[in-house]
Lab assay of single mutants.
Amino acid sequence: CHSECLGNCSQPDDPTKCVACRNFYLDGRCVETCPPPYYHFQDWRCVNFSFCQDLHHKCKNSRRQGCHQYVIHNNKCIPECPSGYTMNSSNLLCTPCLGPCPKVCHLLEGEKTIDSVTSAQELRGCTVINGSLIINIRGGNNLAAELEANLGLIEEISGYLKIRRSYALVSLSFFRKLRLIRGETLEIGNYSFYALDNQNLRQLWDWSKHNLTITQGKLFFHYNPKLCLSEIHKMEEVSGTKGRQERNDIALKTNGDQASCENELLKFSYIRTSFDKILLRWEPYWPPDFRDLLGFMLFYKEAPYQNVTEFDGQDACGSNSWTVVDIDPPLRSNDPKSQNHPGWLMRGLKPWTQYAIFVKTLVTFSDERRTYGAKSDIIYVQTDATNPSVPLDPISVSNSSSQIILKWKPPSDPNGNITHYLVFWERQAEDSELFELDYCLKGLKLPSRTWSPPFESEDSQKHNQSEYEDSAGECCSCPKTDSQILKELEESSFRKTFEDYLHNVVFVPRKT
């Protein structure tokens, strides 16, 4: 048989008469490798580009789960590009990614509803959504962080984005990388972005840091009482949809009607710091009717980097990364020049730590249904340095008659930039024990000054392991946590139920 035959053949030295091919099969003959313009397919066939392209389009058009959109890589027609490569849609070739590779997620039936953290986790790592997304989240724990972890990498949506009755959302900033909504599939009414009845939605994105392009379709905003109209108009300008909307697409009466839409800028007039305090004062603000001013709200939190936005980490279910302080308005003076500047002394802060701070007014709604208010920009203030805590785990070892090696770990709280350490030492008198000992005694162990690591005695271990207080009263049991108490109650309830079950099964009433 021919060298490319495997198993047997019907005619000697003829690659077209093989029972099976050793390498690849091409047009009725066995070959060692697939010549151009053919590609290896499933490690035994040679196919042309049209064959591989037909497989790709067949799966793409069917949208069946589990099928493969075949691509070409290293002269092979394979189910998908290997790690580190992405497909070129024009020629199906796998090309190296520039940075992290995109991950295209194809949605069944063309859309997916995100109504819980669990459903959001199914899209973790996706960068391109081939379909439409509907966000409908009523509640949950730590929602802002969970949504950002699972949806934060999405850069492109081919269909539309719909935010509907998501009472738990305060902001859409968890879509931190969303840059493009194509609108290839539109919501009824030709809408590519749809926001309806979101009672706590206050911000779409921080438009000073976020760009969003909507290729096709219109915007729809109705019944978002805490979303200011200025935020919607800003989205029109940034996304390129200005002029597409009709009169009733953006409701003037049901958007922002319960919001404090600040239209003035508060400026800080005085800032002073110490290692654990920050004193702030800002310019006074009074609405047209000074009785509408209820006070100020001061927001602050630790910020290692200057990239904080107002609604980071917030949701309507209680999660809030900001510390909020309510401040009463100052006494009002008739003389504008003698107006008191409101302020606040922030206490209990960490030394040498940068804080993000902003302040906003708290006002009631005027009778004319106009909203007044003022808010400052987010500023960054760093507390002063102070003395560091003591170095940890000092170790001293003498390696000769004239040297001592000293080692330690950095302090747990540096409280500033540590530039150097101060080492103090003092000579001590020799131990009298060394002169009084009889060095001729056998088995004498000389006193040693070398360091030995501390260890816990058996008594201390027994005390720590004991669940009861000892007789001397030195140790006591740790208080039980809520989960331990709940577990004990469940076990007790189970024992009672099981005992009742045994009584009912074992003891049967005697027939009379």
Rank of each mutant, 00 (worst) to 15 (best):
D257C: 03
T371K: 02
T127H: 03
I157S: 02
V170C: 11
R370M: 01
E236S: 07
T241W: 11
V170L: 12
R369W: 07
S398C: 08
C228P: 01
K253V: 14
K226L: 03
L294W: 02
N255C: 10
C126N: 02
E184A: 13
E237W: 10
V238A: 14
I181G: 05
I129C: 12
F296K: 03
E262R: 01
S116R: 00
P410H: 08
A120N: 01
Y380R: 10
V325L: 14
Y270T: 07
I327K: 14
E302L: 10
A120R: 03
N307G: 03
Q339I: 13
L331S: 14
L169W: 01
A168T: 12
H106V: 11
N136W: 08
A259P: 06
K277Y: 15
L133W: 03
R176Q: 15
E148G: 12
P342N: 06
M346W: 05
I357N: 01
L293W: 01
P351C: 09
R165A: 04
L331A: 14
L266A: 03
L180Y: 11
T386S: 08
L266I: 04
Q199I: 07
T383P: 01
L178F: 09
Y160P: 01
R291Q: 05
G243P: 00
Q354V: 06
T213G: 07
T386V: 07
L196W: 14
S173E: 10
S132V: 01
K277T: 12
D393K: 15
K177F: 08
S260Y: 02
G243Q: 12
T371R: 05
E156L: 06
T215F: 06
L362T: 06
I214M: 14
K267R: 12
Y305W: 14
E237L: 06
W322C: 13
A251Q: 08
A316Y: 15
S269V: 13
G140H: 14
Y305M: 13
K409A: 09
K209Y: 08
S173V: 07
R347Q: 04
L280M: 15
L294H: 10
C105L: 03
L123D: 01
E246Q: 14
L392D: 07
Y305C: 14
G159T: 03
S321G: 10
S402A: 15
T254H: 15
K267P: 03
I250P: 12
K103E: 02
E237A: 09
G295F: 04
S158G: 09
M297L: 12
L180F: 11
N340M: 14
S321I: 03
A195P: 01
P351N: 02
R370K: 03
W286M: 02
W286E: 03
D115M: 05
S192Y: 04
N211M: 09
S269L: 12
Y191D: 08
N211A: 09
R138E: 02
Y194L: 11
T113V: 11
T364N: 06
P351R: 11
